[in-house]
Each structure stands twice: as C-alpha cells, then as structure tokens.
Write a protein that binds this DNA or RNA. Structure first.
Lengths: 92, 92
DNA sequence: TAGAGTAGTCTAGAAAACAGATTACTCTGG
DNA sequence: CCAGAGTAATCTGTTTTCTAGACTACTCTA
C-alpha cells in the first residue's frame, strides 16, 4: 500500500500531471485550490520519492518551477489503482 | 474525493470487510497488525460515516464487538476506485 | 482469591497537513 | 528614482490526524 498516494493533494497533483507535462507550481496551486505552503510540502515528497521531476528555471526574469510525472510515478499510480481494484474484484 | 478512504488502516478494514461479514474487533486488530487504540479510532470514523455497522454483544460473558460493511460503505469504496481509475484512463 | 488473559476505551505524544507570513524579486505609475 | 502592487516559492507555527501503550473492567484458572 503506497502511503504517498493516500492524500487528496498528492493525488490531485498526480491526476493533473497525468494529463499535462511540465505544469508550473502556480498553475497547480490554482487548479487544486490549495495554499502555496501546502502544495510545496506535498510536491517535495513526490519529488523525493522520484514520482515527480522538478525543473527550476527563470521565465521573464522571475523564478519558475515546473513539474512532470516520471515513469516511476505513473507506474506507482497505476499499481495503486490496480491494487484497490483487486480488492473489489475479490468479492462476490 | 473521499477523505475517509485515504488511510491505510481504514482501507485495510474495508478490504477485510469486503471479504468477510461481521468480523470481530480483535480479529481486525490481529490481521491488520495495528494497535487497539488506533483501530478503535479508525473504526469509529467509519461507523460515524455509516460505512461500517457495529454490533456490540457478549460472547462467553466477555464483550465482543463485530463489524460489517454497509451498502453505503461498499458503494463508497467502489466509487472511490472508479474515480481513481478514471483519472488513469483519461490519459493516452 | 491471586494472577493471567481478553476486550476495548482513554490519553497523551508524534507525525502530517495546512494557512498565512515572509523573502526575494520585478514591474508600473507618480 | 522610488513607492506600491504583483509574482514565485519557501519558511514557520498552528491545527488536525494518527498512533501506541496505559488503563478499566471483566473472566477464567489454579
């Protein structure tokens, strides 16, 4: 059971990154309706776990952090869903 | 997104109750390898939410609490899994 | 009737999530 | 040029949740 994927915010991040590549920090904060501090903490965990890749750069002379899902992150999510689904299927 | 189903212990309870009806408190504690206090707290939440039904009785003159998944609980879990799965499917 | 065992609740400490203040810039208007 | 507003993200302290183990209450055996 993957502890990292037992969180509303982290699942939201993964969901968004499944659809879009290289999403900006502020875009994630806006669409997930979560405070910056909270989002930053959750992103750090996902990055530390290797589920998400972080790219820090500058755009228009302002800092810009962007994120994408790694192969490992995608697989972890798929595995997590499959695991939950197998619980459901194992019953009559 | 169902907050109640974002917990390892509560998911474990649901998983076990999907397979077996009327499972005893101590059986759950044993098979999930979780402390009594912790299990009691999580069961309370599931009961309060109407996901799990609680039956307190006596067996051999000793107290015995047993639990089963309600229809609502089963549906909530199925819905949760479906929701996660739809995220995965929505991508190429 | 002392001691060991069982069932489950209570309590208080640890861990996690969260919001808002803060730092560090950039850009615009007076 | 400099004040004020805006943006990006991190830092900090509070609140909530989780968790383990102590505790209550009772039973059974020796």
């Amino acid at each position: 059971m993957d502890e990292l994927l037992l969180s509303k915010v982290r699942l939201g991040v993964v969901a968004e990154l499944l659809s879009f590549d290289w999403v900006a920090f502020s875009e994630l904060a806006r669409s997930l309706d979560v405070s910056n501090g909270n989002l930053g903490a959750h992103l750090s965990k996902l990055v530390d776990a290797g589920y998400v890749e972080e790219e820090k750069s500058f755009a228009n002379r302002r800092p810009l952090s962007r994120y994408r899902l790694t192969k490992g992150g995608r697989e972890a999510f798929a595995g997590h869903v499959a695991e939950l689904q197998s619980l459901l299927k194992a019953t009559p």
